[in-house]
């Protein structure tokens, strides 16, 4: 027999157990988002290749050819692509998980499950796109005859870091969006703006040394630098104080994001 007690102000206790109990629903939500993502599009999943490819061409033109930024001895296109991959993952993850609660408002007002599953499901779609474009990176490396260094085996760690940052920020935005639809306008702006304050089209090395640590407070800086270190190696050394700063910022975003989400979650159905 399943016993369940719901008490005013004490629904907390069940939560983590419920997350596990509803794991199948999580898979279904992620699966639904994946299925729906490219329905009724002509080129379908090719969009997840086309987007980073076009962005790469433009950024390579602007920063590499016109701006003549230093590339540290690697093809500029490869350098840019290593920045685009984690950036686009982060950008689409926060945009989609941010919107996810509002787009699923019907579900929220009609059935119970731990709401954290919804932004988590959106993260999975962004991750799937990311993995597909990772294949494109492999093709690009082959094209430039680029042999990655040994540290590429640590790449999953940086994917994890990117996921943690995306999930933390996504939880914050999703929960805030329920009460303040203003974030619908803030998020696209942040994403647009973020492309230029993150080292996507250029190397972090071009940032003056005295600002480097401050620059690294952006959690994506650590992720992009890590990516370049893994894939390009050589001169692309990790700036350790920066990476540590990124990890700490990510951890605090994740913890506070989940906390804030949990705290506001109980009122979602009332105000959404």
């Amino acid at each position: 027999m399943h016993d369940l007690i719901i008490e005013a102000g004490r629904t907390e206790r069940q939560y983590w157990r419920d997350l596990w109990r509803y794991r199948e629903l999580f898979l279904f939500l992620a699966w639904r988002d994946l299925l729906v993502r490219y329905r009724q599009t002509v080129i379908g999943v090719a969009w997840s290749l086309l987007r980073p490819l076009l962005t790469m061409l433009i950024l390579t033109m602007v920063f590499g050819k016109l701006g003549k930024m230093p590339s540290g001895g690697v093809p500029y296109a490869l350098l840019v692509f290593c920045g685009i991959l984690p950036w686009q993952f982060f950008a689409s993850a926060i945009a989609e998980s941010g919107n996810s609660l509002v787009t699923n408002s019907q579900l929220i007002s009609k059935v119970y499950f731990p709401r954290l599953l919804i932004p988590a499901g959106s993260l999975v779609t962004a991750l799937a796109d990311f993995l597909i474009s990772l294949g494109l990176l492999a093709v690009l490396m082959f094209w430039y005859r680029w042999i990655p260094p040994i540290q590429i085996v640590t790449l999953p760690l940086f994917v994890l870091l990117a996921s943690a940052a995306s999930f933390g920020a996504g939880a914050w935005i999703a929960a805030l969006m329920v009460a303040y639809r203003d974030f619908r306008f803030i998020v696209p702006f942040v994403v647009q703006f973020g492309l230029y304050v993150s080292p996507v089209g250029f190397l972090s090395g071009v940032v003056p040394a005295e600002y480097r640590l401050f620059f690294s407070l952006n959690p994506i800086v650590g992720v992009i630098d890590g990516f370049r270190w893994c894939v390009l190696g050589g001169e692309h050394l990790i700036y350790w104080p920066g990476l540590i700063a990124s990890v700490l910022v990510t951890a605090s975003i994740l913890v506070t994001g989940i906390r804030y989400f949990r705290r506001t979650e109980r009122t979602f159905a009332d105000i959404i």
């Binding site: 719901i6 102000g9 007002s109 119970y112 159905a269």
Partner: peptide, 8 residues
Amino acid sequence: ITEPTTGQ
């Protein structure tokens, strides 16, 4: 779907 204010 929503939490009670009082009771169980």
